[in-house]
Design a protein around this nucleic acid. Structure first.
Lengths: 196, 196
DNA sequence: AGGATCTGACAACAGTTGTAGTCAACCGAG
DNA sequence: CTCGGTTGACTACAACTGTTGTCAGATCCT
């Protein structure tokens, strides 16, 4: 009977809470130590839970890292949608979107690393073909005013790569520039990509 | 006495030869299986040598992957220098450079993956700060006609990121486009980056 | 109170990792 | 032929991995 209360909360509540702790620990590790450092044992140590509760919420290590990735991805998608909504002109949309994304990864660089780096490095994600980047690229591509389909893809892939690289360089400190300037430059990249 | 001849060659020769086999095996594994799959044992299996000879040429696993990376990096650098030399105009220089790089990674995708992906994924490279990309970006930046220093860096980093992403997408088959079109688009990216 | 359920600390398994050491077999110089 | 440098197959170790199992104790319902 899962509805029974225990230590003030129901079982399902505690189970969901533990799942949350595990995902949070996974984000922490995947966003700092990288793929190799985010093992089941390490995640449990970080979440202050035992392995038992890991397999209560996830069948695999793979499932955990997928959950972490999708969690961050959903957050980013939501931030982008919120930013674009209610912006009338393409220029304003681009500015809002870039600003939102910069805010997201500046406030929490781990999320940026998970979003941009993890799918390239972790076999659990590469094998599953779990790349949100093409999705974002397609989202960007839809906004572009190019006739040719493959031309749109080329431009979109290049644009996303340029933005990613600038973000990554900014994240690890190898690109010392003010946040405002970063945003301004990225907006110019987005707008420039449309003008052929 | 290392000058002594043995099985037709001197000791130093054989040692260098074995080192070469190890680096080649490292390139093969790092460029296909990725960082996790390139272990000391796997490299030795692939090179048909025993672990003993691994530690004859390298103190660490780390040293091996650094050697592989720098080997490929030097090759790429040389190809770029050769391509740019004797080209009078910026347009020709850009075309030659892009063509040379595309040739390099199309003829041997493993090199592309080592060059572009490995430094982001392998702790042995990230920890050592072994990124040649900023070096290439700087090289690109020198060619750009921007007054502001940080502006040059911003543009260069973005450009290199765009090129990398297009190459990576092309490499793993998610960007289906002819080689000529790939080159043409990349040239346009390079030239477009200069015009603000 | 008794009994069902939940919790957490561990142990166990077989596998892989980096790194070092052993030992018989080979090879060429004296 | 003998001696010493060279080779390769193999073992050894401790640490780690994913995953499953055990068991004493805490917590709640009846």
């Amino acid at each position: 009977m899962p509805g029974r209360t225990w230590a003030g909360t129901t079982l399902d509540d505690r189970k969901a809470l533990r799942r949350g702790q595990l995902v949070a620990a996974g984000l922490e590790l995947l966003g700092t130590e990288g793929s190799a450092g985010t093992s089941v044992r390490a995640v449990c140590r970080h979440a202050k839970l035992t392995e038992r509760y890991f397999y209560e919420s996830f069948a695999d290590r793979e499932e955990l890292v997928a959950a972490v990735y999708e969690h961050v991805g959903e957050e980013a998608r939501q931030a982008l949608v919120d930013a674009v909504r209610d912006a009338p002109t393409p220029v304003l949309r681009a500015g809002n979107a870039v600003r939102a994304f910069v805010e997201l990864i500046v406030d929490d660089p781990r999320k940026g690393r998970v979003l941009l780096l993890a799918p390239l490095t972790d076999p659990a994600l590469t094998r599953r073909g779990l790349h949100l980047l093409p999705v974002f690229a397609a989202l960007v591509g839809e906004q572009l005013s190019h006739d040719d389909e493959t031309e749109r893809r080329l431009v979109a892939v290049g644009l996303v790569g340029a933005l990613s690289n600038v973000f990554i360089a900014y994240l690890d400190g190898s690109l010392k520039v003010s946040r405002e300037r970063l945003v301004a430059h990225c907006v110019r990249l987005v707008l420039g990509a449309d003008s052929h």
